[in-house]
Design a protein around this nucleic acid. Structure first.
Lengths: 110, 110
DNA sequence: CTGTATCCAAGGAGATACTG
DNA sequence: CAGTATCTCCTTGGATACAG
């Protein structure tokens, strides 16, 4: 990383990229949820069961954020009872290999 | 990521790795600071000048955390005025290529 | 020069009850 | 089944003054 002195970090393109990336992965559960989904398609209930200890409110808002960020897509079926499925978007799948690499960082510092 | 149902996520080794990794990179400035340092050795003042808008308290506590995590090492010289140099540890250098990759995630979601 | 000590505000995360 | 709505913390990040 080379740096020319700017008066504001917010005008540094690299800083903006890093901030964007952190938006995708940071949060206590966010990265874990993405890796958990992986290449699968899962229903809300399935995700919820795979995340014991994560409250409804937290899971729902994380999923909503991930959809807004363009990481996941949400597909709702007009059935009763309701069925909603989550899967990674194309962008999410593109990022997946790098996201998996992040676990290696955990290994290095163990 | 395959999941067997455990009652607690905290007993899932993958969750622990991810949490550890997040500890290294998450925080508004942490990842940026690591990449900024890169292969160089820099003094406190140099880092401070490269991070306009980051207060002394925040920079100092981030550096302290990074040292505690084993990402950076701190070398103090018994001189007047004091001189302190920061550089990546071996582990930090090991992680560096992956950390750089994280910027690509920012690119994907731009 | 290289940091600490305080105090404060804002947002993230959690518990619980309720709804379409 | 798939979420919202509230209400509470708790932690992170920031401003500023001070210290070794």
């Amino acid at each position: 990383m080379s740096k020319s002195n700017r008066s504001e970090l917010s005008s540094d393109p690299e800083f903006l990229l890093i901030t964007k990336a952190l938006g995708v992965i940071s949060g206590k559960w966010r990265l874990y949820i993405i890796l958990l989904l992986g290449d699968q398609t899962l229903r809300y209930r399935q995700l919820s069961e795979m995340l014991p200890g994560v409250s409804e409110k937290v899971l729902a808002s994380e999923l909503k954020s991930l959809v807004a960020l363009g990481v996941m897509k949400r597909t709702a079926y007009a059935e009763i009872p309701p069925r909603v499925e989550y899967s990674l978007t194309r962008k999410g799948q593109l990022a997946l290999p790098i996201l998996r690499k992040i676990q290696e960082i955990g290994q290095i510092f163990n």
